[in-house]
Design a protein around this nucleic acid. Structure first.
Lengths: 394, 394
DNA sequence: ACAGTTTGTCCTCTCCGTGGAAAAAGATTA
DNA sequence: TAATCTTTTTCCACGGAGAGGACAAACTGT
């Protein structure tokens, strides 16, 4: 069996691969889209076939003449995606078009360190592959919940990932799996996911705000992830909301995360439960011994007024920060993502209300603020997109 | 006299022109920098000479062999730059290398509307040109103090420019002067200026914050101005600093401009003068009948404690907003520019202190915050850069 | 069966760039 | 002053790549 070559040879081939990622096409259709002569196109398609990156896929229906020969990405192409969260690892295997072929989520604490977490991920990936789905991998994309030096391929001073600082995740995985690897921040990964298959398909400049254990923001400029000079752009969790706000783990006071991070929500919920303000939460506290952000979500979904008020208050804080960022960045779309997606509508309404009121009218004039479309799979799709873009480029 | 053609014919020529903008070079030197064969390079240089865009400039000193023939941008190339401020218009004529050949500043109220202001600018420009400096113009760049739709070439809903909304500045000037024209926001223009000849020469991602009548921010991503989807990116004057702050002209409360804009400074100064807190300011008020932001500046420069306190307080507010933006954008440099440049050190110290304390350590680790290097000429150099980049591109 | 359409392949012609060779112009040394 | 070495520039021939036309293949509809 011929080994699939790693890379296209030139920019034309890269362009063709990206086009074919959106589905099979006939040579004639490709010729309509790409500004290449028929002969040149035939040559490049031939080369890509020779490289094993694309293959024939039968004949299309006739449009009144000779039936077109359809080409598609090689069905043997396989990308792996690893989305490392605070308390779990999502692993997936996709084909060349990033369609998910297999998916698994393993509970796993990121604080156990890179060795433990990566071996859980590799084992899960091994199980998926052993189903005969992927004999060979052509790339692996990784997302981690903290700042990353994209250039160097490792996390840098990640607050919730002790032991990961400068651990060469990219190179270790590339060596272990014998294929190209890339690592990026989890919000950037999600932004890529929504750009490839979600709400951001047609937008070039947008923000994706993820609200979870921490609060982060993916920045897309001209269709590309913007990472900043140190790779920590979008780290908005510690932007000041108020001087006289609660103390934050970062040492300052009044940070956004001190109002609406996972820990802050849990604290507010426990207070509400103890003071007797919320029956739902008190009951849950009695059951579980302690409360988490998720409990606030379920209570709110069940209609608990206090939980809804907590979320609404948090949404207002996020909205305040976001209003400033919208004025500054003037995006074409804002996507809200993260664990609280289920009760998104309360949150969304509050965020919208603040942003539309406090941002520059010119910036909000035609600014949709929506929830993420992709659910659990957003991260892994984005991770696959990250590495596929790299492999499919020259 | 042969007319200088408008544009290079291909990307190679554009590249050569941009290289020559930094000074004359011999063909051999160009060959070392550009990845072109000697023959190809000779052809392109020949074409550019034929087009009248470049010309021979004698022989370089020998380096042990035949003396190299130096080429430079045509000495007949002329760009015009118009920097429209709130109360004055700066006009300049530059050569192809953006060196300023003539410069004039005319007092002029932007509120008089586009017809009045543009005729002042055109008249001033005419005077400069009549000195025999510029028989022919190859482009004109314009900066205005308000949001601009760069694509359409006109201001959009500019708050301090009544009558300018959607007035087709670009097309009117292009027609009047018979050359290509471009219009952009004044902060973007200044960012271009500092990038071409100031502190930002070696930085690809940075912010330029201008503090003047309004407060605005130029955003540079990967060496290019980022304008946002509506062209109003960087409009940070109305970002919320505090909920219970002073009322702002925009209708909200606690905006940055309500603390530290031109009007806010004047108001605080008059209060200080009336209450007798500041002798300097009271004296000035008695003289002039009213106070402006500039008076605060001169008082502070003279050592007036109240004025310094006002500036320090404003610097803190700017720092608070900037701290958030630094965490979000993770720039490689922050440049502070604007009318208060003279007393920059107090302001700068305050801004630095807040940003370094409140932003993400990873983002501030290697982040210089400096004053703009270019003074009065920053705007016009940037405007010239804007149009020259356009004319020199394909 | 034949005309019209669409698709794919082949072939030739032209253009462009590479790289070598030679020429030009000057420095250095005998 | 002549000869040799360096550096720069021009000239030229060869090779490769792409554009576009011609033709063949495959299919529809009359």
């Amino acid at each position: 069996m011929k080994r699939v070559a790693l890379r296209p040879e030139n920019a034309h081939q890269a362009r063709l691969l990206h086009l074919l990622q959106d589905g099979p096409r006939s040579r004639a259709e490709l010729g309509d889209v790409v500004e290449l002569s028929r002969s040149k196109l035939a040559v490049e398609v031939g080369r890509l076939t020779e490289l094993g990156l694309i293959e024939e896929a039968g004949l299309a229906a006739s449009r009144g003449g000779r039936r077109a020969a359809v080409v598609r990405l090689s069905q043997r192409l396989r990308f792996a995606a690893i989305d490392i969260g605070a308390t779990s690892v999502d692993v997936a295997v996709t084909g060349g078009d990033l369609e998910i072929l297999a998916h698994a989520a393993e509970p796993c604490d990121v604080r156990d360190g890179p060795d433990a977490v990566l071996s859980v991920a590799l084992e899960a990936l091994g199980k998926l592959r052993s189903r005969g789905i992927a004999t060979e991998l052509h790339g692996v994309g990784v997302g981690v919940p903290g700042p990353v030096s994209f250039r160097d391929g490792f996390p840098v001073a990640p607050p919730i990932m002790p032991g990961w600082d400068r651990y060469p995740v990219r190179d270790v995985l590339a060596q272990q799996l014998g294929c190209p690897a890339l690592i990026d921040n989890d919000v950037n990964i999600m932004a890529l996911g929504e750009m490839h298959a979600g709400v951001a398909k047609t937008v070039d400049d947008f923000l994706l705000v993820k609200i979870g254990t921490g609060i982060g923001c993916g920045i897309v400029v001209d269709g590309e992830i913007y990472r900043g000079v140190s790779g920590c752009a979008g780290d908005i969790g510690h932007i000041r909301v108020n001087d006289d706000g609660p103390a934050c783990s970062c040492g300052n006071t009044g940070c956004l995360e001190a109002y609406f991070g996972g820990a802050a929500l849990a604290r507010q919920a426990e207070e509400a439960a103890r003071s007797g303000a919320s029956g739902h939460l008190a009951e849950r506290l009695a059951q579980a011994g302690r409360l988490t952000a998720e409990d606030v979500g379920t209570a709110a979904a069940a209609g608990d007024a206090v939980a809804i008020a907590i979320i609404r208050d948090g949404g207002r804080r996020v909205g305040q920060v976001l209003a400033g960022l919208v004025s500054f960045f003037n995006p074409g779309l804002v996507v809200i993502a993260g664990g609280l997606a289920g009760l998104g509508h309360v949150l969304l309404a509050e965020i919208r209300s603040v942003v539309y009121r406090r941002s520059l009218p010119l910036a909000t004039g035609n600014l949709p603020i929506t929830l993420a479309e992709l659910g659990d799979t957003c991260g892994v799709v984005g991770a696959a997109k990250l590495i596929s873009s790299h492999v499919f480029s020259h």
